[in-house]
Nucleic acid binder design. Sequence first.
DNA 1: CGTACTTTTGAATCGCATCAAATCTGGTGG
DNA 2: CCACCAGATTTGATGCGATTCAAAAGTACG
Lengths: 226, 226
Amino acid sequence: MHGFEKNGIIDWGALITSQPSLARVAASLRELAEVREIAAGRVLARVGDPVNWIWSVISGELRLVRRSRTGAEVILQRARGGFIAEASLSSKTYHCDLMAAEGGVVLRFPVKPFRAMLDQNADFRDAWIAELAQEVRKLRSQSERLSLHGAAERIIHYLESEGSDGAIELSQSRKAWAAELGLSHESLYRTLSRLQSEGQLDIDGPRIAFRKSRKGNARNQGKKSG
Amino acid sequence: MHGFEKNGIIDWGALITSQPSLARVAASLRELAEVREIAAGRVLARVGDPVNWIWSVISGELRLVRRSRTGAEVILQRARGGFIAEASLSSKTYHCDLMAAEGGVVLRFPVKPFRAMLDQNADFRDAWIAELAQEVRKLRSQSERLSLHGAAERIIHYLESEGSDGAIELSQSRKAWAAELGLSHESLYRTLSRLQSEGQLDIDGPRIAFRKSRKGNARNQGKKSG
DNA sequence: CGTACTTTTGAATCGCATCAAATCTGGTGG
DNA sequence: CCACCAGATTTGATGCGATTCAAAAGTACG
């Protein structure tokens, strides 16, 4: 599935292409990275453990979790690509458990040289700051989106905030998109086709865009008025 | 209302106390900051404008917005305290509008010295990185929380992720908390009193905590993983 | 005392989740 | 090429829980 690693050799070109978040920092980091294959359920760190590694997901799913006293698992972060637990860089020990919810391949970087490079390498530092800031922007907009109550509103918001010029090319299945939108996949399917039949959206395979309606309100296009 | 500023003189002690996000960076920034009183509706920057200032909210509400073609306003970020549009630091121009949704007081820092200080002052840089990483952590956990469907589940998740040892001292009104949880305030009130009467929570004014129950409070929420 | 806001409870409605099932898709191997 | 399978996609029916509208009681503040 991932296909970036074979016999311990990483295809950095493909990896970087698929992981925008790593694209700019990778050059300085390659010599530090270790590739690890992780089985589902594997625990990488527990509360209180010293922070020895910075983890980044290539395939599969890592989770930062805490277990409530009722036994329910509380997910604090879910990573299916890119770094997880960035804040651990500034911490001596973990405040949550880090585990693999799904088997896959991860990269790990030793923290000490990672921190040292942040100190000494201006490019790396700028890239890391830009990366974090970009992540903040994306997450803020996701939080705003999840605070919206209607399925249609979330879809529109997604197009406006993550798309370019009101259009996006989905790189994931719609089912996965539904999860990201905090909707059941049925709701997403239904709402998409409703928006299409109402003339608000153009849907063509993985491409979803606002319909370039001539003017005014697209709301009238689905039903006759008067 | 805010009380941090009088006749142009800032009470930095009070401000820093009230704004954890500024606490560690403030020392290096004081000489750069400018205090501005902003009226509701005031536009601070538009799409395409060059980034000249980094803004931080003391009181009132700033928003990063985009206007959809149907005229609806899409909120990308909403700040009622702390920095807004951190990603603009790495950008030449704005990709959204920045406006005041509610009048108040803001700080603004000129970008050039801000960037220069990031380059030259190691403490400031570490603080800024830690600040961003902390914000990422908080937002990730908020996104996970907003993806939960039940009101009770969100409350539990909040206690687990933002509280210490399963207890929190609310610093805001419950109505404001409801908004943060993505719930109507009625839902929050009802669910809180239900959880209390069911013996799951102890609620005492602004303090909300898991009840130290003996055991057998076997209500399971959330079941599936992987 | 009056105003504005929060907190609280009640009742009706609506949208989404859920369960169920059929179709479609891509990939695998005989 | 076909049979087969796992997954995604799509449509239908139903119930629950959150939103919404409404109104009252509590609280802070000048």
